[in-house]
């Protein structure tokens, strides 16, 4: 409910933002690339298509059991996190500076991925008997 509402607001905000961008008024978000290396696709394509790539990959992995990619690189969410996590916080989320939120907070996109997915790179969960 709340999230659906947020999505609606996000869509409206995005439309407004793009209008504003056309007008040339609003500053672009600052995206920090902290780790060297090459993204799984050219930056331009990533900017436009990363959501589709992620959704495609998640269905492939979860429903068909495909891990990694035969050629090139898979759009694994854990993969993104390993490369894009901030050096300071170790995470891709939490604060406008963080990689995944840099654009999203600007475009008012709210992800539910972090309800489940661990946003920190190299994190090891502790186990406890329930």
């Amino acid at each position: 409910m709340l999230r659906t509402l947020l999505h609606l607001i996000a869509a409206a905000a995005l439309a407004a933002a793009s209008l504003a961008a056309q007008a040339g008024g609003v500053p672009k978000p600052v995206v920090k690339i902290e780790n060297p290396g090459k993204c799984i696709a050219p930056a331009d394509e990533m900017r436009r298509n990363h959501m589709e790539m992620l959704k495609h990959q998640r269905d492939l992995t979860l429903r068909e059991g495909v891990r990694g990619a035969a050629a090139g690189k898979a759009a694994s969410l854990n993969g993104c996190i390993e490369c894009h996590a901030s050096k300071q916080t170790g995470s891709v989320t939490g604060g406008k500076e963080s990689f995944c939120e840099s654009c999203h907070s600007y475009a008012a996109v709210k992800l539910d991925c972090w309800d489940c997915h661990q946003p920190k790179a190299g994190y090891k969960a502790t186990g406890a008997k329930p």
Binding site: G65, R67, N78, I81, D115, C116, H117, Q118, K120, Y123, K124, A125, T126
Partner: peptide, 28 residues
């Protein structure tokens, strides 16, 4: 709401879950 999940085993609020036969391990 949960936090501190194992990166290979996402799990979180509002969904049903069960033994995955450690699918992430089996695939490795």
């Amino acid at each position: 709401p949960l936090s501190g999940q194992n990166p290979e085993v996402p799990r979180g609020l509002g969904c049903v879950e069960s033994c995955t036969l450690c699918v992430h391990r089996v695939d490795k």
